[in-house]
């Protein structure tokens, strides 16, 4: 495993109008590492990862300051186009959100097709590859032209993962990707992540601490917009350095 940092966050602040939701967070992630972000609701963890592909600023009144380096390029540099950043940093959302009225196939290749890739053979090849990587191919290969919304919730979420993978991102952000799914679909996605990490660097927000413990290499604990503790997952869960972390992971919080 390459240990060089692919993702480096330095002093990141995120705002909604006058409210500061993320208050100066710095952390870094190595190539192909899985980083889990945990913390109570409203602690700024979703806002934090939405800053990593500059999606946060798309909300009215929202903006962010600081530096986020991805492969040594500061995505908050004035010369950088946020649209180009989002091709390198894919995202999977809390609720499965396939594009309505698009087929399974068109959902997967939407990013490429709308970016101007026209060759059917290329699109077919990438669709198959992405669906294989998202562990969905065998379930949908005979109905690629059925609507994406006809799949079950867990399948829709894997479809969204395939869609994100199709543009070949280097970093994959996952914002509570399993919180709307049943335990079996959750297990499938967790299993899938252990495969995905070979190709992409994953940052995952989760409410489920067992999930964080199972799948991540390093864990960041957020509280009220601040990064309280950041370290190896095993260390954060077995020997937390901060009292707040310990209280949260043992369920004695609040």
């Amino acid at each position: 495993m390459n240990t060089k940092a692919i993702l480096e966050v330095k002093d990141l602040h995120a705002w909604f109008g006058n409210t500061e939701a993320v208050k100066g967070v710095s952390l870094s992630a190595a190539y192909n590492a899985v980083t889990a972000i945990i913390g109570p609701s409203g602690c700024g963890k979703s806002t934090f990862i939405r800053c990593l592909n500059r999606l946060h600023e798309e909300l009215p009144g929202a903006y962010a300051t600081g530096h986020v380096l991805i492969e040594n390029i500061d995505i908050y540099d004035k010369k950088v186009d946020p649209v180009s950043i989002r091709r390198k940093v894919g995202m999977v959302f809390q609720k499965p959100n396939p594009f309505p009225s698009l087929s399974i196939f068109d959902n997967v290749v939407a990013g490429l097709k709308l970016a101007g890739v026209k060759r059917q053979s290329t699109l077919k090849e990438i669709a198959e590859q992405s669906l294989l990587s998202a562990a969905l191919w065998s379930e949908v290969k005979d109905k690629l032209h059925a609507p994406g919304t006809s799949l079950s919730g867990g399948q829709q979420q894997r479809l969204c993962i395939a869609r994100a993978l199709a543009v070949e991102p280097t970093v994959l952000l996952m914002d509570e990707p399993t919180s709307a799914l049943d335990p079996i679909s959750t297990a499938k996605i967790e299993e899938l992540m252990t495969e995905l990490r070979k190709k992409v660097t994953i940052v995952i927000v989760t409410h489920n601490m067992q999930q964080a413990a199972r799948i991540s290499d390093q864990t960041a604990f957020f509280l009220s917009g601040e990064l309280i503790e950041f370290g190896e997952t095993s260390q954060v869960f077995t020997a937390p350095q901060k009292e707040q972390t310990e209280r949260y992971i043992t369920g004695r919080f609040g």
């Binding site: 798309e58 649209v83 180009s84 390198k88 995202m91 959100n97 594009f99 990013g111 709308l114």
Partner: peptide, 8 residues
């Protein structure tokens, strides 16, 4: 947002 996140 899903569309924006794809770099469109």
């Amino acid at each position: 947002e899903a569309g924006l996140a794809l770099g469109l």
